[in-house]
Design a protein around this nucleic acid. Structure first.
Lengths: 192, 192
DNA sequence: CCGTAGTGGAACATGAGTGTTCCGTAGTCG
DNA sequence: CGACTACGGAACACTCATGTTCCACTACGG
């Protein structure tokens, strides 16, 4: 039998439905953070009852969404291999990988959604964040990044640039164009 | 007699109460865009009934808040004298002036709030926005700004940097520190 | 002193989102 | 074929923000 709460086992159907809800929630809540569970259910093409079967309360869904986003961000950071090569090149790789997160970028930037899971477990020192901090510190040590900009600031700037670039790609721009602007701006911003 | 809706005349008390509600709403909604009118009333130190006396519906308050924000932004842009002096210096002056908007910065960055007044009257070409666009075009013409970054992008980057800087000053940093980081980053980002 | 403007508070009606229960149904697998 | 799983939909109770009405209180000016 499949335990739903822990999402441990692999009953094919259950996990697939779960993913559909999670993905739909990410898409819907990215556009409107105040969207109702009925909206999410409709977007996921499931009944509202089913949503409650997987996530008893709204906050449960939001937490799961946060955990999922964190997981994706961590995976993207891993793919970027932030420990290897020149710091600037690594930062650009990371930027490219994170840009692929898409809707998740909007979620991370919504205070009301972040508030739902911030006090839970991880404060803010996720593995992804720490890898980024380490990268910036390495960049500082090697003289590749502006020493006047502390790691925290660079991290915030990176995320905000990703956010506006993603908004832009939504507004009609090519993803490539938006990413180019983002990378170009970031490159110059962190240069010494 | 004082006409409330048009906010035209100057019955001392009325306008003062109106301002109190507007300021309280800006502060409260900046922290939590989903705050109730009761929260706003409490923050403004008035009864919930009084809020409805000045703004019949929630959307009316939101619209007034948008108009107020626009007014402040326009005034700040005017003080920055964006037409005078070197483009980069003008952009920095503008950045400094806009940073003083404080809570308003958070409002502008909230999609749900912006949605309440975007389809009303002004699409997005406010005088403040147009002045910024003109400034960037002048910077491009004089070779002071990176020609690879179009005015729209620079505008978005400016606002997002202001936003994160404001968040930072809220999180404990000195306003001066936050503004310095913002200016330093912006300066390098727009440089050719 | 009386009328008026501005206000606060209680009370009420309404609507929307939430969370729950129950039941019928469509697959699936032994 | 039965048992089981997953699902959808209807119905319900509950909470909360909203918007409205009504009344009492206070300050202030003619």
């Amino acid at each position: 039998m499949n335990t739903v709460a822990g999402r441990t086992t692999g009953g094919g159907t259950r996990n697939r439905t779960r993913r559909a809800i999670l993905d739909a929630a990410a898409a819907v809540l990215a556009k409107n953070p105040a969207a109702s569970l009925a909206d999410v259910a409709a977007a996921a093409d499931v009944g509202r009852t089913t949503v409650h079967r997987y996530f008893a309360e709204r906050s449960d869904l939001l937490r799961a969404l946060g955990a999922d986003a964190l997981e994706k961000a961590t995976a993207a950071t891993g793919r970027a291999r932030t420990e290897e090569g020149a710091p600037l090149a690594a930062l650009e790789r990371l930027c490219q990988e994170l840009f692929e997160l898409g809707d998740v970028l909007s979620l991370v930037f919504d205070e009301t959604l972040v508030a739902a899971w911030s006090w839970e477990g991880w404060e803010q020192d996720t593995e992804a964040d720490r890898a980024l901090i380490r990268l910036v510190e390495r960049g500082h040590a090697e003289g590749a990044f502006d020493p006047g900009l502390d790691p925290d600031w660079i991290s915030q700037v990176l995320w905000s640039l990703l956010y506006v670039a993603w908004q832009r790609s939504r507004a009609g721009d090519t993803k490539h164009e938006a990413l180019s602007l983002c990378l170009r701006t970031l490159r110059k911003a962190v240069a010494p």
